[in-house]
Simulated assay, not measured.
Amino acid sequence: MASTDAQKAARAERSLLAGAAPDVAAAARGWLDRLGHERRLSPKTREAYARDVSTFLGLLAADRGGKPDLAALAALTPREVRAVIAARRAEGIESRTQMRFLAAARSFGRHLEREGLGKVGALAAVRAPRIPRTLPRPLLPEDALAMTNPATRAGDAREPWILTRDAAVLALLYGSGLRISEALGLMRRDMPEPGRGDQIIVHGKGGKTRMVPVLPAVLSLIDAYARACPYDLEPTAALFRGAKGGPLSPRIVQLAVERMRGALGLPDSATPHALRHSFATHLLGRGGDLRSIQELLGHASLSTTQIYAAVDSTALMAAWRSAHPRAGR
């Protein structure tokens, strides 16, 4: 998976450099190097940033009738930037993607200013699109546990080791609150031997690492998978493997969960990422404090974690309305 992401990032970066004016391409090359080496952004994030800036420059070129050079970027007006955003909106691009699009352009603009190549003030003068606030949708505890139980896959015709693998991955998402990319990025050496530890080091967004506890039941599932896996799990290779032996793809896990939803009668909100939401919400409901949950999830800001407090209070009010004798009066 990592090599595929790196290849996609390289293609996006080549497209950006090929489609830009010479002086802009030279500046973009330095910006891309900084994203990879200094900021240590993942290949997937670099791909998205390169693609967004390439699109931004392409829309400017279409509007101006030629590729903008550094002088043209410095002379940009807020009206021109808004026109680019409006063109994207007309294509049906949602606000969250628009926000990332503008963030990538601003990142490039800051690089130009830092390197003394000009200041693109218009980018800072334009307000980012508003993103509608939506609450995470955690699963009921019994549904989350059912998703991580290999016994619930009795009707699945896939090979037993694959069913055990899926259960182990989903158990990590729910038991430790990992992102799917973090779980699939683990190597065999990252997992403690049974009875010899209960923590793992997880590599999260932006190359940041954190220590995460792992429940004994989850470690047992991972050990069962490792013993059943028909491929050699080298210490420095991917822990979770696909049917042909390569690193497991997130899409395979998503498809497995889609099949599981039908078999278990789960809602559409039952996704791999919903297990991470469930971990945080259920931990908070059991008395966990937000600061500790922030550290376990790897959130850079406490405000990101605070959304789970809103989820918990919403669930509490729903239970009160359904159970309290005076709730409807």
Rank of each mutant, 00 (worst) to 15 (best):
S278D: 01
L17D: 07
R158A: 14
A183I: 00
A146D: 00
A154N: 05
L117Y: 09
Q199L: 13
L59D: 15
P129I: 11
H273V: 08
L73H: 04
R100C: 04
R114N: 09
A25Q: 06
D156G: 09
A71D: 15
L35N: 06
Q254L: 03
K208I: 05
R210M: 05
L178S: 03
G116L: 06
A72K: 06
R153E: 14
R286C: 04
D166C: 03
M191G: 01
A274Q: 02
E115R: 10
E142A: 11
S249C: 11
I200S: 04
D223Y: 00
A18P: 09
G298M: 00
M1W: 12
D312T: 11
P192V: 00
R276C: 05
V218R: 04
V81H: 01
L112S: 05
R326L: 15
R179C: 06
A300K: 08
A168Y: 05
T152R: 12
P132Q: 15
R110N: 14
P78Y: 01
I85P: 01
I93D: 08
A26R: 11
A28R: 07
V24M: 01
A26S: 10
H277R: 00
V218A: 12
R326I: 12
S303V: 13
Q254W: 13
R110D: 14
G197Y: 09
I200W: 07
L290F: 01
E113I: 10
Y231A: 04
R100Y: 02
L16Q: 07
L59V: 14
V257N: 01
S303A: 15
R261A: 01
A310G: 12
P129N: 07
R153K: 11
Q254K: 01
T305C: 00
D143E: 13
K8L: 15
E113C: 06
A154I: 07
A87N: 12
P192E: 02
D156C: 10
P194R: 03
G121N: 09
T55W: 12
W31D: 05
Q199F: 14
G65A: 03
D69P: 06
P192R: 01
I85Y: 07
R251Q: 14
L102P: 01
V214N: 04
L70W: 07
G265R: 03
Q199I: 09
Y174D: 06
R241E: 10
E295N: 08
V24C: 00
A217K: 12
